[in-house]
Design a protein around this nucleic acid. Structure first.
Length: 319
DNA sequence: CGCATTTGACCTGCGC
DNA sequence: GCGCAGGTCAAATGCG
């Protein structure tokens, strides 16, 4: 899924001047991909995080919104699901204090399990066990594997996923949450393994996968799945806790986005869809289409997109 | 000692 | 049905 035609659109002066919406169909599925991009941040000067903090609020917003504080110069984001949409955007250096960064968003909803295309990425069946923290629920399951089998027949509901492609030397991006690695697998056609992490907070089922792009070893693909149902740990080492304003540390989807998915929750219709428990398959389709419309409707929004994704307090409002 | 990581085995879905 | 690939489990191990 990494490279389904991204298209660029640019962001200058605090507003999205050129938003490119690409909608493609893959085997019956509609893909929406968004990509926000910009050139490169000079890592030699500062980390991505530093850059975000020291130079531009907009960037800081992005970073906070995306929950990333990596040493990356480029950040792409994507939501996986059945439909993917990509939109690219260029962040002008002027807005970044001389630095630019790249953020790509891929929206893709997992349509039922039938979608094979995205399917490879989709977890086929995690819900059965992962859905719940293992130690807490299973109670007396006898054999670990035996349990899995029982859930057969039920289609597990796939959680929305949000992937980021970041330029980073470190695999694990500091996003403020504590993760526990529970597996690692070699990826086909890639010399780099994929690591699986789970949020260590009890009852939080959020997971993330981290893998390095074999095409560009300097980039790390981080895929988040699920939504945190808790605040950011206060003990985290990194910046996140300190970086994120309290309002962004709230777990509530209705609050500020403290997790990539929550960004989506800020998008029009997302709540609506979620609240109506729309089928996973259509969730994003309907979600992101409106999203595009929204973007387009705000043709020259001052941050149109961002504003909706991040707290306005983090966005620079220009007259 | 508690927690995180490693790692091989196992399970599931999918394509052939 | 078989093999492959992705994903997960959990025992073993490491670390602070």
């Amino acid at each position: 899924m990494s490279d389904h035609g991204f298209r660029d659109f640019y962001y200058h002066g605090g507003a999205f001047n050129n938003i490119d919406h690409d909608q493609q169909s893959y085997g019956g599925e509609t893909d929406h991909m968004y990509r926000v991009s910009s050139s490169s941040i000079d890592p030699s000067y500062m980390s991505f995080t530093d850059c975000l903090h020291s130079t531009s609020m907009d960037y800081g917003s992005l970073e906070k919104a995306f929950g990333l504080s990596p040493t990356s110069s480029e950040v792409f984001s994507s939501v996986e699901g059945g439909n993917r949409t990509m939109m690219k955007q260029h962040v002008g250096a002027d807005e970044l204090g001389g630095n630019t960064g790249e953020v790509t968003a891929t929206l893709n909803s997992s349509v039922s399990s039938s979608s094979s295309e995205a399917g490879c990425e989709e977890d086929s069946d995690k819900s059965k066990k992962d859905g719940q923290p293992k130690g807490s629920d299973d109670g007396g399951e006898s054999s670990k594997k035996g349990n899995k089998a029982k859930m057969k027949g039920e289609k597990k509901q796939r959680e929305p996923r949000f992937a980021f492609v970041t330029k980073s030397e470190v695999d694990q991006l500091e996003d403020g949450y504590r993760w526990r690695k529970y597996g690692q697998k070699a990826v086909k056609n890639s010399p780099y393994p994929r690591s699986y992490y789970r949020c260590t907070t009890q009852k939080c089922t959020v997971k993330k996968r981290v893998e390095r792009s074999f095409q560009d070893p300097s980039t790390v693909i981080t895929t988040y799945e699920g939504q945190h149902n808790h605040p950011l740990p206060t003990t985290l080492r990194g910046s996140a806790a300190g970086l994120f304003p309290p309002s962004m540390l709230t777990p509530s989807p209705l609050g500020r986005p403290s997790f990539p998915h929550e960004l989506l929750m800020q998008m029009p219709n997302y709540h609506h869809q979620m609240n109506n428990q729309a089928p996973a398959g259509s969730m994003f389709v309907e979600n992101f289409s409106p999203f595009h419309q929204y973007v387009h409707q705000h043709q020259v929004p001052d941050y149109g997109l961002l504003q909706d994704m991040v707290p306005s307090t983090f966005l620079k409002h220009e007259p």
